[in-house]
Nucleic acid binder design. Structure first.
Lengths: 261, 261
DNA sequence: ACATTCTTTTCACTCAGTGAAAAAGGTTCT
DNA sequence: AGAACCTTTTTCACTGAGTGAAAAGAATGT
């Protein structure tokens, strides 16, 4: 009767794919699991996962805590740091973000474009209590956030067409959901040099963001967010623009001479 | 005659181990490589690496740039964020570090203990030009740095014995290299509640650091560094201690109730 | 003491992974 | 242009590494 297969029983892939599936089983929601959970989520036999996980543990890509539960290992983190996104962008950007944060004392964020959405690379919040609104690594829509719009506005026309052509999901009453309206908004961003978004994604939050340009290409966007509907966020526009410009210049320098100071 | 084998010709491991070897070939020094470089460094036949790299790329653990060079992929970074070290420690600590940094305007760092050395988890520098002295992810000696000493001093006696019993490499004239002297120094740290290190690791740098305690166990250390031999760094001790204590408290709260606010 | 769930070990089968070699592109010489 | 030397990609016959069902061993709950 109860023949319910719990998982799609992943159709026999290569060993490598299986190993990656084991790693991929861990998520933000469940960052640590027992062996059998791991097996269930990965859709693989326990014995197989047992072996694979053993090897991954040896390589420090996985680690087991006292109770025997698996979580991702230090190696994973170390290698994550070598990723271009982190190793370059974040590292170079940090001082600019910190200085900006020092000046405005609001939450400052850095995002890049990956595929069809933006990804938070860094987020500096002073509040020790505030729940994590937008985690680093989180993917956010290009059309409904200030950083997203800042990036999108300066992307190349072809890409803009692709995005405006896709369904634009609505998140709040203020979300822009028609290609027409979005294009108009992007025009404004290009004109002003920054994006301003009020409650388009998260109710109660306001943000401004400026694109980071390197040799005429958007590489990222820096944003300032506030979760209490501050209406005078624009007073920080000059600092924001300066931070974005500064980062752009620095990235250009480093691209020219990777060893530079 | 010239039969020189370039690499140890890694003795046929498991597929998984090979795949990890391919990933592991990338390093901070060489964060991107061509296929054949990858193969050479990993000590595997090109054809093999070709296949493995293909699969890793599919899983977004590797990525190829325009020129066909491989570097670590976004997935690697995303998963690194789920690591306990990052996902918990760093995320929770950030606001404390930022506030501390705001108050003292010097470089602030966060380190944890891993194996027999300390590892930088975060480092906040304001200077946009200063060369990256100590990269995030870098391993540093427990006996010769302020953060290291702060951690070591409050580790359990057995561990302290292990460390003091190991050879203590000298880095500068001021490095403490005898077990006796180190123990004396650790006593002082325990007494004062913070560590103060002057040019023990990097010439020209001074640092103070305080341990982060959770339920009587050191979980990390927060440090303030200066590279210009500032001699009044101790004026920040109160803020430093408060930041460390605050983080400790917060970590304890979260350990008790993981969902807390 | 029994039931249940999780971890670890074993083992015979076979198919996935292997790597040498050749083909196909690229780059840098003279 | 042609030669010498890279690197990347494809092919293919061989075989041992990886497989997963099943059973044994731990651990925990009722």
């Amino acid at each position: 009767m109860s023949e319910a297969r719990e998982f799609p029983k992943s159709t026999a892939k290569s060993v490598t794919a299986r190993a990656l599936a084991v790693l991929g089983a861990l998520s933000a929601q469940e960052p640590s699991m027992t062996l059998s959970q791991l097996a269930r989520v990965a859709g693989l036999p326990v014995a197989t996962v047992y072996r694979l996980a053993g090897e991954l543990e040896e390589g420090r890509f996985l680690q087991r805590d006292a109770s025997g539960r698996y979580s991702l290992g230090v190696r994973m983190w170390e290698m994550g740091l070598l990723t271009p996104v982190h190793g370059h962008m974040r590292e170079v950007a940090m001082p600019f973000l910190l200085n900006l944060q020092y000046e405005c004392r609001e939450t400052v964020q850095l995002a890049v474009c990956d595929g069809v959405d933006a990804v938070y690379i860094e987020k500096l919040t002073l509040d020790t209590k505030t729940p994590v609104q937008s985690r680093i690594g989180a993917r956010i829509p290009l059309h409904a956030t200030a950083v997203g719009q800042a990036i999108l506005a300066l992307s190349d026309p072809g890409f803009i067409d692709v995005i405006t052509g896709m369904p634009l999901p609505r998140f709040t009453d203020s979300t822009v959901t028609t290609p027409r309206a979005l294009n108009k908004m992007l025009d404004q961003v290009r004109e002003q040099g920054f994006a301003h978004s009020t409650e388009e994604y998260v109710p109660g939050s306001t943000a401004i963001a400026a694109p980071v340009m390197v040799n005429g290409k958007v590489e990222a966007a820096i944003g300032i967010v506030n979760y209490e509907l501050r209406d005078d966020l624009e007073v920080f526009v000059p600092q924001l623009i300066e931070a974005a410009a500064g980062l752009g210049r620095r990235l250009k320098e480093l691209a020219a001479d990777p060893q530079a100071d």
